[in-house]
Design a protein around this nucleic acid. Structure first.
Lengths: 320, 320
DNA sequence: AGCCTCTTATGCTCATCAGGCATACATTGA
DNA sequence: TCAATGTATGCCTGATGAGCATAAGAGGCT
């Protein structure tokens, strides 16, 4: 079933004679005659009756003409689709991100982005660490929002860094400073995220460096479990600053190692071998801008009120 | 935009490598490689990224894949359509018929036919005489229901004959027989159909043969006008026996010439040069059968009651 | 009827192009 | 580093489709 033949058929049916169709299609009449014959043979269906010196459609031909027109319209539309895809402002963008990032950042960011780029359809995948790496490598997602661990397989776009915070009930005695050194945490029962979270691995690494043996009360995949327990005074939750804590009443302190905050680079990454779709560029741009505006989501408590005055919408909103 | 390329693209996208697609499509890998390259060049769009030894779809490629699948499905459906058309029990049948035939015959026949052949879609065209001939020749209709005038351009399928009747108010003095000779009609004011109706031309011819000069009160295209006037006692309507008169109170007599009814062959005709679609055969068959059952629609009055007892459904129905 | 015009059908030739083959090149895993 | 797997490319060939020339069919006009 060749499109050329179908187009020829349509032209002949419309113009009533092979000769006129030949003029329109800019090829010779014998070529067209043969195409029509071939098509009829292929379909095993008479499409035309010879009436005097004209060809008129048989009943079947008339039906078939309709179908042909529709198919050709679809094919032509294909060209236009390619045109649209080439422009690069339309498409599906598959994004992998850790659950808490989706909650704290993307839930607010996506509606804003959708307004700017209504033709980009973002598809989210919850994925962390190695699992996310695998998805990027298998090509299941276009970009991943993740801690940048210097993996050479990935191209990066830097985002504002994440850092390690400790959260506990206000009643808990944890010193009065906005910071706590990692060594001093050893004495508290700790509420940790599981090893899938790179903030956890970062914390573990810092513990090893300081030669601290942490007292682990709970290891969980669910950050909210930690927050709820911490609020209930059950221990100190070690969390990333990207986690939203505004629904809980907690005292937040920055965890330091040798007086410096424990930070990790945060980035959008993608497989080096797979260039991002063009519209992904705008996504990166917009997300970086947004994060610079709103980060850190969670501040050490002392600066909390000041920050709240600056960014009330993000800190107090309960709409998402 | 060649279908072969699209199919190749879909196969490669599905199987992940050109080599596997080559196995499935039974052509060599270099040929496929080239097809993919050509397609990308034609669309000016990267469809795949090389990732190690595999090809993975770009975001655009993924979008395009969806469109391709849909187009190919449509194309394949085209083959199935041809298959259905080849079977010959499905299609559109365009029929031309005189208005009164549509009213008296087809209005009852079509629902019945539609039950037998639900996949044949009948399209009616009201057309008479020369106009109908022109439609048949131009190929605008497949078959015409008409008086058979021996035209060599048409193939015929004979239907029960039509005949000339006279209709008048029961009060009018028109003799007591079920027949009236054409000569005796000259003295009455006549209500005639116009020259477009072949029954009118038949009547005129009979008049000339008998050397009768008819007294024409009205010449109309609308049979019902004649019937209404006749019922009101304004004259004698000359009508074909195919006309329904059951909504009027009329005395009906057969018009004769030399004691013989004035009849005309009635037939389904079609352009010799255009073979009928296969399903038209069944239409002819069914229509002929139906007409043998119900004709004549209008009988001379004397036999009316007897006939009514035989075919009450057709004669008394007012549902159409 | 005969001629002219318009149109389609067919035989032949030629050019184009797609596919096959051989092979180079790239990636991956042992 | 080698074997295995896969892709790209150069070259060749054969199938196919288009053009040309022409025959043949149909309609219209004188």
């Amino acid at each position: 079933m060749e499109l050329r033949r179908l187009r020829t058929f349509v032209a002949v049916a419309e113009l009533g004679t092979v000769s006129k169709a030949a003029l329109r299609l800019r090829i010779t009449q014998p070529a067209l005659s043969r195409q029509i014959m071939d098509l009829q043979q292929e379909l095993r269906l008479r499409l035309f009756d010879r009436v005097g010196r004209r060809l008129v459609l048989t009943a079947e031909g008339e039906q078939f003409l309709g179908h042909c027109r529709s198919v050709l319209a679809h094919v032509d539309a294909l060209g236009e689709r390619a045109e649209v895809l080439r422009r690069g402002d339309t498409g599906v963008l598959k994004v992998a991100a850790p659950p808490h990032t989706i909650e704290s950042i993307l839930s607010m960011f996506l509606p804003r982005y959708a307004e700017l780029f209504p033709n980009v359809h973002v598809k989210l995948n919850e994925a962390l660490g190695r699992e996310q790496t695998a998805m990027l490598e298998r090509g299941e997602v276009h970009i991943g929002i993740r801690h940048d661990q210097g993996d050479r397989r990935f191209e990066s776009r830097v985002l504002p860094p994440d850092e390690v915070l400790a959260a506990c009930a206000p009643s808990l005695e944890l010193g009065h400073s906005a910071v706590i050194d990692i060594g001093r945490l050893a004495s508290y029962p700790l509420l940790l995220l599981d090893q899938g979270y790179s903030i956890r691995r970062l914390f573990d690494a810092a513990c090893r460096l300081t030669d601290v043996e942490p007292n682990i009360l709970l290891e969980s995949r669910a950050p909210h479990t930690l927050l709820a327990l911490a609020e209930a005074g059950q221990g100190v939750a070690i969390i990333p600053s990207l986690l939203r804590t505004d629904r809980y009443t907690l005292r937040i302190v920055r965890v330091t190692h040798r007086r410096k905050p424990i930070r990790e680079r945060f980035a959008i990454q993608w497989d080096k071998r797979r260039p991002m779709p063009p519209y992904a560029e705008s996504f990166c741009e917009a997300l970086a801008k947004y994060m610079r505006e709103v980060l850190p989501i969670t501040h050490p408590t002392e600066s909390k009120m000041a920050a709240a005055r600056k960014r009330p919408a993000v800190r107090k909103s309960r709409t998402h």
